[in-house]
Amino acid sequence: MTIQLRPAITFEKVARVFDLADGQQVTALRDVSFSIAKNEFIAIVGPSGCGKSTVLRLVAGLIAATRGRVSIYEVAVSEPPDMVGIVFQKPTLLPWLDVKSNVTFPMRHKYGRVTAQDQKLARELLALVGLSDFANSRPDELSGGMQQRAAIARALLLDPEILLMDEPFSALDALTRDEMCFELLRIWTERPKTVVFITHSIPEAALLADRIFVMTPRPGTISEIIDNPLPRPRGIDTLASPLYHELTTRIRNTVFARPRAA
């Protein structure tokens, strides 16, 4: 990767401890340090409960670090930053709004109004994610994959520099998931963003990311950062290449390297 002077996202010895209701404490994250360059695509892979989502919520400013420092363009994150868009595991579209109003919802929710400019932008984004014909449909008339496309368009509305994706394709069937990966690559090529993509899926991480952060649980920490040697643009052919196979094997070995604490 090209070395940038100002990294987009930096974690310096970040720890996050959660207080449970019964007074116990759980260390979700310990001593996590990394830096992510502008327009870099990062995948975070790891088993459930390894603190992947905690990393994402720290970047989004939804929770604060217990120790250490999280910064975006070298400014410490103290509240949800403007330049971040989030795509969740579930599409969570609002059922009472049509698809276009769902895409413009962040504007209405943040500023209380939607301008003609926003409407135009929403139409462009719907075209980008391939939903132009469904602008006036209700979310429940769409398939799971189409709903998630709408959620991606919604996340792109405020033109965020950073796109956070929390297992966005894990609720989809396997075929749709592959299709959505290629779609995401295309969208990312057309509109480069810094992407932090959380996933359970090693093939997904290998296909999409520039670098793969492998996390291990209890307490959550990054055990290894793997550079992705696969050339871009990547497509269906990539999945058949020996290099891809080698990479997924390497990630898998890293994920299962440590015996998991019972």
Partner: peptide
């Protein structure tokens, strides 16, 4: 997730209640 979306947009509590 929708509450988090609302927080990430730094929307007011009133809008969170009325719009979501």
């Amino acid at each position: 997730e929708l509450v988090e979306l609302s927080r990430s947009l730094r929307a007011t509590r009133g809008r969170e209640i009325l719009q979501i």
